[in-house]
């Protein structure tokens, strides 16, 4: 078993379907949500870097997304490396109100994605997914 794990670490074969549920390389239905959550935190980083005046308001929201990503990674057995973001594809809007609207839209899409995951999840995953859904709804409230 240990040897098999080491071999996998050397040559990851994600999603080939050969591995049982204990395998860290298996696909999980929450992988897309984890990736999107990491990206959402990175969107905040980009806006905070471009708009330092918004930092105080946005930092707790960014930190919440990081905590959600950490909890998701733990739930589905993903390593800490799954939490490092690839660069945000587009640069954030230049003025503060457009930047807030941009995050607002990202939070709404994120809420919908988390809600769909919660509705489809087995019972033991619903609490975390419900909290993530609700958190994203409250973020939209303070971005207004």
């Amino acid at each position: 078993m240990l040897r098999a794990t080491a071999a996998l670490a050397a040559a990851p074969l994600a999603g080939c379907g050969l591995f049982d549920r204990e395998d860290p390389e298996r696909d999980d239905p929450l992988d897309p949500l984890l990736a999107a959550t990491v990206r959402l935190a990175a969107e905040y980083d980009a806006v905070i870097a471009a708009q330092p005046a918004l930092a105080e308001r946005l930092t707790p929201l960014r930190d919440a997304h990081r905590a959600h990503a950490k909890a998701l990674a733990q739930l589905i057995g993903r390593p800490a490396s799954s939490l490092s973001a690839s660069p945000v594809p587009s640069s954030p809007p230049g003025d503060p109100s457009a930047a807030l609207a941009h995050l607002q839209a990202a939070e709404k899409a994120g809420q919908d994605q988390a809600a769909a995951a919660c509705l489809a999840a087995p019972a033991d995953r619903t609490a975390l997914l419900g909290s993530i859904t609700a958190a994203r709804a409250t973020h939209q409230e303070v971005l207004r």
Partner: peptide, 28 residues
Amino acid sequence: ALVDCAIRATRFRRAAGVTPATVTFPGR
């Protein structure tokens, strides 16, 4: 219902001047 309660809690925190007005894991 969970989402509704979380949003209302955030609004009342704001009305009370509590910062941050959000919590990381609503309902936990």
